[in-house]
């Protein structure tokens, strides 16, 4: 499935990153890279540091040491305009975080209009197309509170896509959803993956990891224990810790 021969420079390059929350070591000397178009699924028990790692890619968490290069820019360098760089990094949260005071369409158009100087007409046009893509065009003019969790998360994905990011980061996008709504969100993510989007996904959905991932990364206690293709990962895991984890969740 994956073409691991690409000599292209990585679009995300995380080198020796550490981060502590008080006494808790959330990330312990973690290195990982992603190339353009690659889909990386990060799994692991809660508290393993997977969300922290993902959130450090767009600097929602600032790391204590190590470097993170995104699209050629060191995100912690004082010369890097993090706000500009974040426009290239779409993020989807566990709790959706739609703007409740804006309609669905306004949620999508706010950033393109304010940050890219797009005209309202153009932003609306793109917004409607994206809503079409995630299958809730008819909800364009309602407020997010009127939507189900699955619908809200699809809007959140569309909102991130409205900035035409190079990379999409998903932080447990289905964990807050009722079971019957997980499928509709995963479908959107699978479509996105097939279109070639570069994606980093923290999730507990092993089916999704199997189907979509080029590479699965298993984390525990703030470190990467093992990584590899889904075939390797689910059929021949090397580490005891990985085997234990898989036996618990599969």
């Amino acid at each position: 499935m994956s073409a691991t021969s690409a000599p292209t420079p990585p679009i995300v390059d995380i080198r020796h990153v550490s981060k502590s929350f008080g006494a808790l070591k959330a990330l312990n000397n973690v290195s990982m890279s992603m190339s353009l178009g690659e889909k990386v699924v990060i799994i692991g028990p809660s508290g393993s540091g997977k969300s922290t790692l993902l959130r450090s890619i767009n600097k929602l968490e600032t790391v204590d040491s190590g470097t993170i290069i995104v699209d050629g820019y060191d995100i912690n360098a004082p010369t890097t305009d993090i706000n500009r760089l974040r426009m290239e990094l779409g993020m989807v949260f566990q709790s959706f975080n739609l703007f409740p005071h804006k309609t669905v369409l306004e949620n999508l158009t706010l950033a393109p209009i304010k940050l890219k100087g797009m005209s309202k007409a153009e932003a609306d046009d793109i917004g409607i197309k994206l809503l079409d893509k995630v299958g809730i065009r008819e909800k364009a003019h309602v407020y997010p509170s009127k939507l189900s969790g699955g619908q809200q998360q699809r809007v959140a994905i569309a909102r991130a896509l409205a900035m035409s990011p190079k990379i999409m980061l998903f932080d447990e996008p289905t964990s807050a959803l009722d079971p019957e709504m997980i499928g509709e969100v995963l479908d959107v993510m699978v479509t996105l993956a097939k279109e070639g989007m570069t994606m980093a996904v923290v999730t507990h959905e092993m089916g999704f990891a199997r189907e979509v991932a080029d590479r699965v990364v298993f984390m525990d206690h703030g470190g990467i224990i093992e990584e590899g293709t889904p075939e390797h990962f689910f059929q021949n895991p090397e580490h005891e810790r990985t085997k234990l984890f898989l036996s618990q969740i599969l």
Binding site: L60, M91, N97
Partner: peptide, 26 residues
Amino acid sequence: DKGQTEAARSLGFNTKQTMFLVILPQ
């Protein structure tokens, strides 16, 4: 909710834009 700030910042809004476009209106 802190998630509102995070969502706005992750889209590329700076602190001031986040405050005036997202937080204060709510």
